[in-house]
Design a protein around this nucleic acid. Structure first.
Length: 286
DNA sequence: TTTCCTGTTAGTGT
DNA sequence: AACACTAACAGGAA
């Protein structure tokens, strides 16, 4: 479930393996996964060295030598798998498991690198993409994106400032708006609001300063905690030691509609807000 | 079997 | 401006 923590986890993992390696070949199984024709794409990408992997919001950027950047968005069901000689790193969507032959029927693209390792892009629903862009195009696309909640400068005042120009918007849909704050998806929106004790249906304008403070703190806390646990998604990482993790067990409200609130024991409510399933506690959230 | 639901988000229409 | 709806699609749950 790639939201910010899942993407951050993948980025950290890939940064251990990809920089310094050269793309030897590129295979494509779904035309729409990339933004250029395959021939042009190959001409631009094959033989080029990877320098760095980073992210902005939920988007993963692989920097290449020259003015070339691969922008990957996993959307709902995207998955990146690094299959090295000794290591296997799976990040993103849970459906396709470890131990399966690759490529599989959901593999949309494959990068084969100079050390013999392969990076697989799998995506069940084909929403995700890999775009090759210049730094300038990257800048243009990213200026539309909102605050980075894990930036050192992020705080309640910045959060309020980013949202307050939509005073009548409901706070949960506003948090999901990537032009305001990046990285928060359906799971962490519900989790953050529960932590902060704020009803998802409250309007932006109705939040008091103390609530902005609680919300900013909750967002940072939830995201950081999830990163520590390597995200909510099944994210399987296997190396010499073997390690894996999941924030799933830590969730307080997401996916728990109809069950008891972990704080007060009351039954959690579930309904739709802005077209998204939303879970909250009427006792703990006001 | 069928129907409903799902992690995203750009785009369109009201 | 805010909100609803759609597109992309597969599969799990009920």
């Amino acid at each position: 479930m790639p939201e910010l923590p899942e993407v951050e986890t993948i980025v950290r993992d890939l940064n251990k393996y990809l920089p310094g390696k050269i793309i030897k070949s590129f295979q494509l199984f779904n035309k729409k996964t990339i933004n250029l024709s395959l021939a042009v794409w190959r001409r631009q990408v094959v033989g080029v060295k990877i320098t760095k992997v980073w992210r902005r919001g939920k988007q993963i950027i692989i920097d290449l030598v020259g003015d070339k950047h691969l922008v990957i968005h996993l959307k709902m069901t995207g998955q990146l798998i690094w299959q090295g000689k000794h290591d296997l790193v799976v990040g993103g969507h849970p459906i396709v498991g470890v131990g399966e032959e690759l490529p599989n029927k959901f593999t949309r693209a494959v990068f084969s690198l100079s050390d013999g390792g392969q990076l697989f892009f799998n995506d069940v629903r084909k929403f995700g993409y890999i775009k090759l862009v210049s730094a300038k195009e990257l800048d243009i696309a990213f200026t539309r994106l909102g605050l980075e909640p894990l930036a050192k400068s992020f705080n309640d005042k910045k959060l309020k400032l980013a949202l307050v120009n939509s005073p009548k918007a409901k706070i949960k849909p506003a948090l999901l708006d990537q032009t305001k704050v990046v990285g928060i998806g359906n799971i962490y929106a519900d989790e953050s609001l529960w932590r902060a004790g704020i009803l998802p249906s409250r309007t932006v304008a109705s939040l008091k300063d103390a609530e902005w403070k609680a919300l900013a703190k909750a967002i940072v806390g939830v995201l950081k905690s999830s990163i520590t646990h390597r995200g909510t998604s099944f994210s399987n990482y296997r190396d010499a030691q073997g390690s894996s993790g999941s924030f799933l067990k830590k969730l307080k409200v997401y996916g728990r509609g109809g069950q008891e609130c972990r704080k007060c024991g009351k039954i959690l409510h579930k309904s739709k807000l802005g077209g998204r399933g939303t879970v909250w506690c009427e006792e703990c959230q006001k």
